[in-house]
Design a protein around this nucleic acid. Structure first.
Length: 707
DNA sequence: TACATACAC
DNA sequence: GATGGTGTATGTA
């Protein structure tokens, strides 16, 4: 069997020594893992990038990072040398067990669509300024480019590249300042279209979103063909050439024409069959009554009508058409049974294309096996290299080398990689819950004068405080981020005793952290190129409390995707079985409100390690602090039972249920399960007076019991 | 809890 | 001459 140690001698990168110039060229190299960048003269492009970079501080720092990565790879190699064949065989058995479990988790019942606008910012700018039409252009400044159009990509100019390098690669490159307000407005229009296919779609950014088409497709097939009829403008016709844009109606043809068409006699019978309708639409004579737009009085461009069919492909074509009609921008889409695959698919036929993987295991596997791991969202430069050094390049390799991966990576990463190798991904596209941090940071030309540094810090705190007030958010942990002129990044954090968004409080904490850095650098000055302030451990300004129902929802969300939801034999329980070993085996939520102290153990849940299982039964108030939920979930994940609630006045209105957890895990070192009284007392008893001493839960009056 | 790293867009 | 800003997740100590 082939594995890392065998490959080492063959891999020149591992022999070449720390950050050889070859290595650095490849580190700085153009990342052509992007649509529109195939078949470029990479050699030449990389040489230009390398030349433009090689004398910079940035480059020096990249070299340092590259050396660190090489060190990690060396450590990995020495780890490999110590792994015995027997261990590898054992790991392979473990991996196969995991893969069998994952196979049970495979869910082909959803149709997930990933919609991705083509070169979004650049496309918006080109749309609004026709003089940019046939020019290579990019949105951004000399410092950094946000995106480039397809013409510029032919020169190797791409997003996340500094503008001055873009200009070296393509001297005619036109740079356009970003206009985020505009992109946000366009994005809103796009989202209106998306919402018609999945009201719960999940936007990932201004130009990208996941949709679950499952429900839409169900209803789509039952709906009347008319609802799938659209007016499409024909492009590059004689009409365009004759009249140009000036005299032709630029209104949304569907909003102007569709109602008129629908009113025409042939359509009155809304039960018209697809065939009747198509026949009508094919007869050109039908369209002669609408020469002039009733809204702008200009001549209609040449148009056709189309009835989109019931298939996913047609539905997505229709969606993309509607986006284009509304925004005059094109989108690409990927269709697959899960988000991971849908994302890869949306890139496959970019720009202005779509690709589908059918919900069929064989088809998924044939797509996935030869897929380079780098194509998968979440696998970046570093992971690619770490895996590459043990011979993993494609998803097939992830399977082939599963035993080695088992030994070299964390359990979380291992599971993640196994899921990828099997083409399994999340089948839900729910938006994530509340945000977990809020921050602001700024790059500037060197500042080293402590006075000016503290001044900069003040500005940032002011901004952050304002942002937090806008968002009605309070936070507890303040983190200062600095980047030295050598590009070294440091973060320093401090947790405040109370939640706040007060500017002065923020400033005090941030300046204290900054001052510490300035002092520790003495007698040298602290020379910075960036400073940032972040607040985390957030809670909402007004109601930081959630209802029990919301809490259940939140918990369910937290565990979704990684877990199998199962009907529980006891109707009072909802059982969530965990498929990742880092989490506890089960958590059970008892919703039986009559059972005021759920102390019973649920025998159905505990398959093994019964002596290590415990049940918490907590009477719930109407409202719980959201922090309690977070804390309890986090703690459970860590298989510890220290519930550390937050001081919070609770305006509760009676007990409505019992929250019951059955958990597998270790006890505290003294053998008892402990609860922090302060946190529980606050939401159970509304008492502020309790101290935060740790109590033995068996003695507590909260009804908390150990099994 | 604090910090660093990796990643996405 | 010159390499961003915002947010999440994860590993480690």
């Amino acid at each position: 069997m082939e594995h890392g140690s065998d490959r080492r001698a063959q891999n020149p990168e591992l022999v070449a020594g720390p950050s050889s110039s070859n290595n650095m060229i490849s580190r700085m190299a153009l990342n052509d893992n992007k649509a529109g960048m195939e078949g470029l003269d990479k050699e030449r492009i990389n040489q230009i990038i390398f030349e433009a970079s090689k004398d910079s501080k940035f480059f020096e720092n990249e070299k340092k990072k590259e050396e660190q990565l090489e060190l990690r790879i060396q450590e990995q190699q020495s780890k490999i040398l110590k792994i015995t064949q027997a261990q590898l065989r054992g790991a392979e058995r473990e991996a196969d067990k995991v893969l069998t479990l994952l196979e049970n988790e495979r869910n082909l019942s959803h149709t997930i669509v990933h919609v991705d606008m083509d070169a979004f910012y650049a496309a918006v700018e080109m749309r609004d300024d026709p003089s940019l039409q046939n020019k290579p252009m990019a949105v951004g400044g000399l410092g950094m480019l946000s995106t480039s159009n397809y013409l510029a990509r032919r020169f190797g100019v791409r997003a996340a590249m500094p503008g001055f390098i873009g200009l070296k690669l393509c001297p005619d490159l036109v740079l356009v300042q970003p206009n985020f307000d505009k992109y946000t407005a366009v994005s809103k229009e796009i989202r209106q279209v998306l919402a018609q296919y999945d009201p719960n779609f999940c936007p990932m950014s201004l130009d990208e979103a996941y949709l679950d088409f499952t429900d839409h497709l169900k209803n789509r097939c039952e709906s009347l063909p008319l609802s799938r009829m659209f007016v499409l403008q024909e492009k590059n016709t004689e009409c365009d050439k004759t009249y140009g844009n000036k005299d032709v109606c630029l209104c949304d043809l569907n909003s102007v024409l569709r109602p008129a068409l629908l009113c025409s006699s042939e359509f009155r019978d809304h039960g018209a069959s697809d065939e009747t309708l198509q026949a009508f639409l094919n007869s050109e004579s039908s369209f002669r009554g609408f020469d002039v737009c009733s809204e702008c009085n200009k001549i209609f461009p040449r148009y056709t009508c189309k009835v989109f069919g019931c298939s996913v492909e047609d539905a997505v074509l229709e969606l993309r058409n509607r986006i284009e009609e509304k925004t005059h921008l094109t989108a690409s889409a990927g269709i697959a049974p899960n988000t991971m695959l849908a994302k890869v698919c949306s890139d496959k036929n970019k720009p202005n294309g779509q690709y589908r993987i059918k919900p069929d295991k064989a088809e998924i596997m044939s797509f996935v096996l030869d897929l380079p791991i780098r194509k998968i969202s979440g696998i970046g430069k570093v992971t690619e290299k770490l895996l590459g050094s043990i011979g993993v390049v494609t998803c097939r390799d992830l399977f082939t080398h599963r035993a080695m991966i088992f030994h070299l990576f964390s359990s979380t990463s291992f599971h993640h990689f196994m899921r990828i190798s099997a083409g399994i991904g999340s089948t839900c596209v729910e938006r994530d819950g509340e945000r977990k941090s809020i921050s602001t940071e700024r790059t500037f030309s060197e500042i080293s004068d402590p006075k000016l540094l503290l001044q900069k810090c003040r500005e940032l705190c002011k901004n952050l405080s304002e942002d937090m007030k806008d968002e009605k958010t309070l936070g507890k942990t303040v983190t200062l981020k600095i980047k030295t002129v050598e590009f070294e990044v440091r973060t320093r954090s401090f947790t405040l005793p109370d939640f706040t968004n007060d500017e002065a409080t923020l400033l005090k904490a941030a300046q204290m952290l900054l001052q510490t850095e300035i002092t520790s650098e003495l007698p040298r000055p602290l020379r910075l190129r960036l400073m940032g302030v972040r607040m985390s451990k957030l809670c909402s300004d007004q109601d930081s409390q959630v209802s029990v129902a919301e809490m259940f929802k939140k918990m369910d969300k937290k565990y979704q995707g990684d877990q199998i939801l199962k009907a529980h034999p006891n109707p009072d329980f909802l059982s969530v079985q965990n498929t990742q070993s880092v989490l506890p085996k089960y958590h059970n939520i008892c919703t039986d409100s009559d059972n005021d102290l759920c102390a019973e153990h649920c025998d159905n849940c505990d398959d093994n390690d019964e002596d290590e299982s415990s049940i918490f039964s907590l009477p719930l108030d109407q409202t719980l602090s959201s922090e309690f939920v977070d804390h309890s979930c986090n703690k459970f994940e860590q298989e510890s039972f220290d519930l550390n609630g937050r001081q919070k006045d609770s305006s509760s209105s009676g007990e409505v249920g019992i929250l019951k957890f059955a958990c597998k895990g270790s006890r505290a070192s003294d053998g008892k399960v402990h609860v922090r009284r302060k946190g529980l007392a606050n939401f159970l008893e509304k008492s502020q007076s309790e101290t935060s001493e740790t109590l033995n839960c068996e003695e507590s009056h909260f009804g908390l019991q150990e099994n």
